[in-house]
């Protein structure tokens, strides 16, 4: 059975095209592109909320997009135990919807970070099954608000339920810091309790093709398909 997927586009999304190509090339299945004003979502295995600056990041990153018409359908999709992946701005939107815990605040050093970063798996889930223990992935980040914050109680919950999917780590470049943006416990990606919803700041859709510097982003889709 072929793997079906969809990418939601909001005004200001700028990684929707990359996400569509990423899904088309790696899943070989049907990929839908859905405008945020739509009120129905086809039955698909995976929905991606792409990166970008939806609604100009007005008020808070992801705040406006989280109130879009399509979001009710996205929540239903997640409640049906199907996969939902929020990348960068998509992660911010998922926290604003409340599907994921915590919030993403300004990077600690107030700089927009557009560079390669290194992450590794923290706890195993269906999004990172194909990644080996202690394997370091090189994946680009491009964000201003990627500093993951949650209170101690929530952090304990995320740890106890094994909801931390990825954490930043030291890589091969000497200028790469271990925790690039000041996130609590260097968290780069978390899931919901049922582990069918993942939010991550790094962009796997910018690390899959031969012309990319790294192809480590393939591992996310390979994990889901396997």
């Amino acid at each position: 059975m072929s793997f079906k997927s969809a990418v939601i586009t909001f005004p200001g999304s700028n990684c929707d095209r990359d996400a569509l190509c990423y899904l088309k090339d790696l899943t070989k299945g049907k990929v839908h592109n859905i405008w945020h004003e739509e009120t129905s979502l086809p039955k698909v295995d995976l929905v991606i909320l792409p990166g970008g600056f939806s609604f100009g990041d007005y008020l808070r990153s992801g705040a406006m997009a989280s109130k879009s018409k399509i979001i009710d359908e996205v929540v239903k999709h997640a409640n049906d135990n199907r996969y939902l992946l929020g990348i960068c701005n998509g992660f911010q939107i998922l926290t604003e919807i409340g599907l994921l815990k915590g919030a993403l605040i300004r990077n600690k050093k107030l700089k927009f970070l557009g560079k390669n970063c290194f992450i590794k798996r923290k706890f195993k889930n269906n999004f990172n099954l194909s990644i080996k223990d202690n394997q370091t992935l090189q994946i680009p980040v491009a964000h201003n608000e990627g500093n993951f914050y949650c209170d101690t109680e929530t952090l304990n919950l995320l740890k106890n339920n094994e909801q931390i999917a990825f954490e930043y780590c030291k890589g091969e470049f000497s200028d790469t810091e271990e925790n690039i943006n000041g996130s609590i416990e260097a968290i780069a990606g978390i899931t919901n309790k049922k582990k069918n919803v993942l939010g991550m700041m790094p962009h796997p859709e910018r690390a899959y093709s031969d012309f990319h510097q790294s192809q480590d982003g393939r591992l996310i889709i390979e994990s889901l398909i396997s």
């Binding site: 008020l59 808070r60 705040a63 109130k67 926290t95 604003e96 915590g102 919030a103 605040i105 914050y149 949650c150 209170d151």
Partner: peptide, 8 residues
């Protein structure tokens, strides 16, 4: 509902 994110 919108103006404030009470987590932060």
């Amino acid at each position: 509902k919108l103006l404030v994110n009470d987590i932060i």
